[in-house]
Nucleic acid binder design. Structure first.
Lengths: 183, 183
DNA sequence: TTGATTTAGTTCTACATAGAACTATATAGT
DNA sequence: ACTATATAGTTCTATGTAGAACTAAATCAA
């Protein structure tokens, strides 16, 4: 386990038992109409943290979320990727991706070979072990997701998805305007 | 700046320009009906990361999110809190809260005094400087939130809030069942 | 009262991360 | 062609974080 990065954006606003009232009330410090925004990002921060904890707790062999994330990306979108493109896809720094790939390499979950077309570059490939690890991770999380879907209802998530995607797209656009996109 | 904790749960699934298709398609590895769940947590992870980056970028004086979070908590819910209760409120380890409070102390944003009723404990108090810093931070983020509200519409956030709260409450409950709550 | 257990907080180690400095290669300008 | 600039990746430093080992104080049991 490590880090937690997972800091919720604003703070769980209640010191009470848990977060049963989190950000519900008005906050005089905020202009009218912004409480909802503040509150939404707060909820998102808390959910991210709790969900990551839970996910990492069931991940096989002490695999951490960043490791799984990269493996999953390589399986879903194909391997033979540069560190640069991985760093961009995850919006992390180059140094961070170097570190993550080195950990995966040390576990034998990926292979790294020089880019035949660019002497500066490297290409990252999945190993069989890496694919298996990714599948195991998904198998490990599936029961959790099932419980969750059963207790809260899938509709809740179906309603949430397009709305969250809209916010994500906006943030994404602000961070990476078309001018600085890359293929 | 530091860390990033901010790891999105699953991975931005596209290496393409940005995240325009993030987790939209079916993922054969997941049982039917779980794609939505997976996708929602993925979006939440990405949003958390991007939003935190943006927030920290405008925060005064290199203040980081955890620092602001604690200041905000103390303003909103009152100071004179134990490290223990702060750690619980934010669901971070005791060691983490020791670190955060020490940073705030070094900046003169809080005071820490021994608990008069418990020789083991300490109490954390806001300083005037701490209150001002919290207000400045909110002032700094307000324009960002305004733009956001204007471009996406407040309704979007109003619709999101109760649904996210439901998920947060569930995760919270799973992590801290009534049996281990505290006052 | 005395001894065992629990609790508040700190410290230590290992990790993820950002950002800056650096190296090596590629590309652009002339 | 040669030089300047841009790019891919690594390394270094400072941070946030978890978790375990540790200290000191409170509580519980006998």
């Amino acid at each position: 386990m490590a880090r937690e990065n997972p800091h919720h954006l604003i703070s769980r606003t209640t010191g009470a038992p848990c977060h049963t009232e989190a950000m519900g009330e008005k906050d005089g410090a905020l202009p009218a109409g912004q409480n909802h925004l503040f509150a939404v990002f707060n909820e998102i921060g808390i959910i991210e943290q709790l969900a990551r904890h839970r996910f990492e707790a069931v991940l096989p062999d002490g695999l951490l979320l960043p490791h799984f994330s990269v493996l999953n990306h390589l399986v879903r979108l194909g391997d033979d990727k540069s560190l640069k493109s991985l760093a961009f896809a995850f919006q992390v720094s180059k140094g961070t991706m170097t570190n993550t790939v080195q950990r995966l390499l040390a576990r034998g979950l990926v292979e790294v070979r020089p880019d035949p077309k660019d002497g500066r570059g490297k290409r990252v490939f999945l190993t069989e072990s890496g694919r298996r690890m990714r599948d195991d991770a998904i198998a490990a999380i599936t029961p959790e997701l099932s419980t969750f879907a059963a207790e809260l209802g899938e509709d809740l998530f179906a309603e949430l998805l397009p709305r969250l995607a809209k916010i994500r797209a906006k943030l994404d656009y602000m961070r990476n305007p078309p001018s600085k996109r890359e293929a």
